[in-house]
Design a protein around this nucleic acid. Structure first.
Length: 914
DNA sequence: CGACTATACTCAGTCTGGAGGTC
DNA sequence: CGACCTCCAGACTGAGTATAGTC
């Protein structure tokens, strides 16, 4: 078969990158099947050596570089054709016996492939997954069944997850136990807030809602009329006449009353039941809003606070000083301040400002030229900001509250807008303040100065009829638009990356709800097509056309492992990848069919996973990594995200790579919730839910940074456990003290101290216990003294303290004695073997629960549940679960989430299915 | 190019668990 | 002695933010 380059559009070539040839010669497939070395060369990048190679890592990039140097050089100068010739001739050279083997291997593949595609496609098990050395990569779902080779490992992970859940359960049990008592109070509190219809709420925040209720009255009024609804005027008054605040406030109160009643009787507007909603591109008919809130102007530092250059305090122009302040205020953020790129970028921009505004002046007015970053000392500025911060922190609660209230008052007009006559919350109405850009990961632009956004940069989007928000005095907007196809209220471009920033509505707004709803409906629709899609990509995994085979392989990865699409990225962005942008070094192949992913994904979060894949996929990846490709070459060099998405779109309107993530996440959650038993306390059910949530989070690789004190916390818990184990040993020794015959009865081993609690540890532990007791006694002594003084009595003398401290001395002595004699005297009155056994049992229990808690905590340290809950799990699943198992929705959704998912909460009953 | 979703981080505020105290 | 209360540091949560993706 002759391949023609013409019938395959060149998709993604890199300037001097390496590209796969368009067609995949049969011989290559065969060679891959068999893993035959070409000409006896060891070629780790492509083939598998014959013989006992299975355990070997076939394509360590490093090894490739070495072993393969020569071939690479040759191949890189030739094109795909030579590759084909080479491999086919190699193939033909083979002795017959080898050929036969090739055939068998190929046959085996066919069989396994057909087996796979015959399988009921609906949600067949995920390929088994192996735990990464670090972190989270349990794959979820059916793959955890132990019929897969790696099932055991998965089961282990599952167990860990379960353990994690137990902690929650425990907490809940406790809570329920307490429920009768003090707990009730807080429960009632939250109930009154959570369960009572909004109209009943008295909090000021609720008033917004209530007003909303009023608007809702006219929700059945034709849109055009709504625009003219009288409420509109009211908003205008509020927005433009802050002077009348007190008046307005009184009015508000009044309204609140009415609203309350209104809301009780009035149906709120349910867009999800409105057939006219959500189709077409026109997003609104009328739109009114107050624009944006600018950050406060820069306040120059007090004249006593100056940065130092080469030890000399220098006065800067206020613009330069502001930039110095950006840096100075974050000296405690070592992560940034110790990053050379950050410092370099900052200093470049800082110098630019200095060149513009003039350099610093010393106290005599002489110019100080700032040229070396190393000579800059921002500490005085840092200390100034720190002092401010502590001052702020030290403010009384009342002061803080007043400050907050004032801010809220000032911002009130911007908080909401009128969207087709309904009051809607605005999301980010505050213009981002200037500062230093904090790109994530190794972002080449991190540390650059993010400039203050001027009104002249801001475009306003608003209804034609509406009053245009006033720009700040002496300024004007860049532009005022009336784009009804946009959902944004204001927009500007940021100076670092030229990215567009939008002011949009809050997550609980109708428009966002609608698109959220659509997103999940789209994912549900994918259910209808998924079988066909999977069938197709399985077939195309063997396509002779390189582009198709790559596409099929990519879809496989996206479907199975929830990878992101992976758009191309520029030079001036952090070097992160998704599926289509995976590079040679991000995938390691380990025969027979394990793929190891290790790359930085979105936000430079590491994706590490060892997974077993379809034989054909394994083979394909081998082909895609074949030399001359090497480090930094694209694996999918014939594929782009747009080609991929275009293809997906042919299956279903609007189907793109990201839909698979939503689909798989929600589908997994649905399955897990379906399997859940309805028994147990509320707390246990919540824990079960969170476990399922956790699995989805792991699937999506949602991580969080490990909390600063985590290691310490774990260590503390370990020490506590060890303390208990030591105590356990002591109790056993007490048994011997009571009845020496026990040694024979139970065997000497029973009384041995655990090995890890060696002599040194014991001494340290004992010392710690003694010291702890001393501290306690001292503290108590001081406190008692304070009390005495407060009561006007004399405080106790130091002698009393010494007296009291004797208890600790006793303890110390006791330990010493124990160490010396190797015996422990039985404690407690009337000690018996039975009592000791009971003690032992108690200790064992405590140790067990602590261990569970510890493991749970450790396993959970870098899994973030929130992201999947907010973005991937269809909220209706949660609502169904809540209804079916009778757990209040508040246990799953916070107040804001309940608002965001109102459409879900109100629209489903317990029979709903994803 | 532009507009939208998705993401982790930050910080303030809330909650918890354990120690000590009281009855 | 144990049931319960109080206090407080430290852990955890939630809302907000701005960055990083997708299409």
């Amino acid at each position: 078969m002759s391949s023609s380059d013409d019938d395959i559009p060149l998709v993604k070539g890199r300037a001097n990158g390496v590209k796969s040839q368009d067609r995949i010669p049969k011989s290559v497939d065969k060679a891959m099947d068999k893993g035959r070395p070409s000409n006896g060369h060891v070629d780790p990048g492509v083939s598998i050596r014959m013989g006992p190679v299975e355990e070997m890592d076939v394509d360590t990039p490093v090894a490739n570089g070495h072993v393969n140097g020569k071939r690479k050089a040759r191949n890189s100068t030739t094109n795909g054709k030579s590759y084909k010739e080479a491999s086919s001739s190699e193939d033909d050279d083979k002795p017959l016996s080898k050929r036969r083997r090739t055939l068998q291997a190929a046959k085996a593949h066919v069989e396994s492939d057909s087996e796979l595609s015959d399988e009921p496609l609906a949600h067949r098990p995920r390929p088994a997954v192996k735990k990464p050395p670090k972190a989270t990569a349990a794959q979820i779902g059916e793959s955890s069944d132990s019929d897969t080779p790696l099932g055991a490992k998965l089961a282990k992970e599952k167990a860990q997850i379960e353990k994690a859940a137990e902690k929650e359960a425990k907490a809940i049990r406790k809570e329920e136990k307490k429920a009768a008592g003090s707990k009730r109070r807080s429960k009632v509190n939250s109930d009154s807030e959570d369960d009572v219809p909004l109209a009943k709420k008295k909090k000021p925040a609720a008033s917004a809602k209530k007003t909303n209720g009023v608007k809702d009255e006219d929700s059945d009024v034709p849109l055009s009329r709504k625009a003219q609804a009288p409420k509109k005027t009211k908003v205008k008054v509020e927005a433009s006449a802050p002077a009348k605040k007190s008046n307005a406030k009184a009015k508000k109160e009044e309204e609140t009353e009415q609203d309350r009643e209104a809301e009780e009787e009035e149906e709120q507007y349910k867009w999800w039941e409105d057939p006219t909603k959500g189709d077409g591109t026109k997003k609104w008919t009328t739109l009114e809003h107050a624009g944006v809130v600018f950050p406060p102007d820069y306040e120059p530092l007090p004249s006593s606070v100056k940065m130092r250059y080469d030890g000399v305090p220098v006065s800067l122009h206020k613009d330069a000083e502001e930039v110095a302040g950006f840096y100075g205020s974050m000296l405690n953020s070592t992560h940034n301040v110790e990053n050379p790129t950050f410092n370099k970028n900052f200093f470049e921009d800082f110098k630019k400002i200095l060149d513009k505004t003039g350099h610093g002046k010393d106290k005599n007015g002489n110019t100080v030229k700032i040229e070396k970053f190393e000579k800059c000392d921002f500490k005085p500025i840092f200390e100034h900001f720190e002092a401010e911060r502590t001052k702020k922190k030290a403010m009384s609660a009342a002061e803080k509250k007043a400050l907050k209230a004032a801010k809220e008052d000032a911002e009130a007009p911007y908080m909401h807008c009128m969207w087709d006559g309904r009051k809607q919350k605005v999301g980010n109405f505050r213009v981002e303040p200037p500062g230093l850009f904090r790109g994530r990961g190794e972002h080449p632009k991190t540390g650059k100065v993010k400039q203050r956004v001027q009104p002249e940069q801001i475009t306003i989007n608003i209804g034609k009829e509406a009053k245009i928000p006033e720009p700040p005095e002496g300024h004007h907007w860049k532009e005022v638009k009336h784009d009804q196809e946009g959902t944004w209220l204001a927009m500007w471009q940021e100076n670092i990356n030229g990215a567009y920033k939008y002011v949009m509505l809050a997550a609980n707004s109708d428009i966002k709800g609608q698109s959220d709803y659509k997103k999940f409906e789209k994912a549900r629709e994918l259910k209808k097509h998924i079988d066909r899609i999977r069938e197709d990509y399985r077939r195309e995994l063997k396509s002779e056309v390189m582009a198709d085979r790559q596409r099929a392989t990519a879809i496989y990865l996206i479907d199975q492992f929830a990878l992101r699409a992976g758009n191309e990225k520029g030079e001036d962005e952090a070097d992160t990848v998704g599926c289509c942008s995976l590079k040679y070094q991000h995938i390691t192949l380990r025969p027979p069919n394990t793929v190891i992913f290790d790359f930085l994904g979105k936000d430079s979060i590491r994706f590490y996973d060892e997974v077993e894949v379809d034989q054909q996929v394994f083979k394909n990846l081998k082909i895609f990594k074949k030399p001359p490709k090497t480090t930094d070459d694209d694996i999918f060099d014939r594929l782009t995200t747009s080609a991929l998405n275009k293809h997906l779109g042919s299956y279903m309107q609007g189907l793109t790579a990201k839909v698979f993530r939503t689909y798989n996440a929600s589908w997994t959650m649905a399955k897990l919730l379906r399997e859940m038993k309805s028994t147990g306390s509320i707390a246990e059910k919540v824990k079960d839910y969170n476990d399922a949530n956790r699995k989805v989070a792991i699937l999506c690789n949602h991580k969080r940074t490990v909390a600063a004190g985590h290691a310490g916390q774990i260590e503390k818990m370990e020490e506590k456990i060890n303390g208990l184990r030591y105590q356990q040993w002591r109790v056993k020794q007490m048994m011997l003290d009571i009845d020496p015959k026990q040694k024979k009865k139970r065997g000497a081993e029973y009384f041995e101290r655990p090995e890890d609690l060696d002599g040194e540890w014991v001494k340290e532990h004992q010392a710690a216990l003694v010291e702890e007791q001393r501290q306690k006694i001292r503290k108590k002594f001081e406190k008692d003294n304070e009390k005495l003084v407060a009561e006007g009595q004399k405080e106790m003398k130091a002698k009393e303290l010494e007296e009291r401290l004797k208890v600790a001395d006793e303890l110390e002595k006791k330990f010493k004695h124990e160490n010396k004699t190797g015996k422990v005297e039985a404690e407690g009155k009337g000690p018996t073997i039975e009592k000791m056994e009971a003690n032992l049992e108690k200790l064992t229990q405590r140790i067990e629960t602590m261990k569970v808690q510890k493991d749970d905590k450790d396993n959970n340290k870098e899994v973030a549940l929130g992201t999947s809950k907010i973005n991937y799990i269809d909220p209706r699943l949660t609502v169904v679960f809540s209804k079916k198992f009778n757990v209040p929705i508040e246990r799953f959704f916070s107040k804001t989430l309940r608002e965001k998912f109102d459409w879900a909460i109100q629209s489903v009953d317990e029979d709903w299915e994803f």
